[in-house]
């Protein structure tokens, strides 16, 4: 039960912060919609076959929403740890008998629920703006997104660890955004090995769900294996990378310094 109570505490804190600082989140979504409108209008005027991000309007719409979400997911982990270190509260989180890893996973679980709601909201907004109809199979989208986001949290953990050790990693975080653009563009059907990259397989499945009407009930063993395996492996790699950084940080006493 201790783990449940700590999860509840993290969830409540996230809710309080979201509620109290809703204006910042609201402006973020408004900016996103405005940029989407500009890109969409520009893309329409160039022509359907010349999209830089995707090969169709539907693909562009989903790809852009997923990119927004992916950026949020990996930077959420990295930023939140670095932010806690800067404020000094990270040391307190390390001083509980509940493992810090659990507190981190709790935060990721809560963020995932938030990201799922956000994704559905912005997709509906985009569908209204563009008049494009997509298959909104909420169950399939939620399950796939829920699982695949953990691969990005793993990457976020590595970046967070680097942030604790090297302190200033803004440029690396900036560069990672471009890497995620690459992840959104690369297709495992044309370049098979990219399905080993984080989030790629999940993204492809979500594309198929929303465009082709694919469903979790049609997922093959290979689909499930890649989806779950990819997230588990990247999360484990992320946790291991973070632990390596943590060892250095605890040795040098830098947990509360930023």
């Amino acid at each position: 039960m201790k783990y449940f109570y700590s999860f509840s505490a993290i969830a409540k804190r996230e809710w309080i912060e979201l509620k109290r600082y809703w204006f910042n989140s609201f402006i973020g979504i408004v900016m996103y919609i405005l940029v989407f409108l500009a890109l969409f209008t520009g893309a329409q005027s160039i022509g359907q076959n010349n999209f830089a991000l995707m090969d169709s309007l539907e693909g562009f719409l989903i790809g852009y929403a997923l990119w927004f979400l992916a950026i949020g997911a990996f930077s959420d982990t990295a930023h939140s740890i670095i932010d806690e270190a800067r404020k000094g509260t990270l040391e307190q989180l390390y001083m509980t008998e509940i493992p810090f890893t659990w507190l981190l996973i709790s935060k990721n679980l809560v963020s995932t629920v938030f990201f799922l709601l956000l994704f559905v909201f912005i997709i509906i907004m985009q569908m209204q703006i563009t008049g494009i109809a997509l298959n909104l199979d909420l169950l399939s989208i939620s399950i796939t997104l829920f699982i695949s986001l953990f691969s990005l949290y793993g990457i976020g953990l590595i970046l967070a660890g680097l942030g604790l050790v090297f302190k200033r990693i803004q440029n690396l975080l900036g560069a990672a955004q471009f890497v995620i653009v690459g992840i959104m563009v690369l297709s495992p059907t044309t370049i098979p090995f990219v399905k080993f990259l984080p989030f790629v397989y999940g993204r492809e499945l979500i594309m198929n769900i929303m465009r082709e009407g694919y469903s979790v009930f049609n997922f093959t063993i290979i689909d499930w294996s890649f989806l779950i395996g990819n997230s588990v492996i990247y999360m484990l790699v992320g946790l291991y990378g973070y632990k390596l950084s943590e060892r250095q940080v605890l040795k040098r006493g830098m947990l509360g310094q930023y």
């Binding site: 700590s6 505490a9 008998e97 509940i98």
Partner: peptide
């Protein structure tokens, strides 16, 4: 620790107390 940095400055006193009891596994 030094500089009373164990608090979330953007939460209220009561919210802080509730949060820190929660992450210590207390209902």
């Amino acid at each position: 620790l030094e500089g009373n940095r164990n608090i979330y400055w953007r939460m209220t006193v009561k919210e802080n107390l509730e949060f820190f009891s929660g992450i210590n596994g207390i209902s």
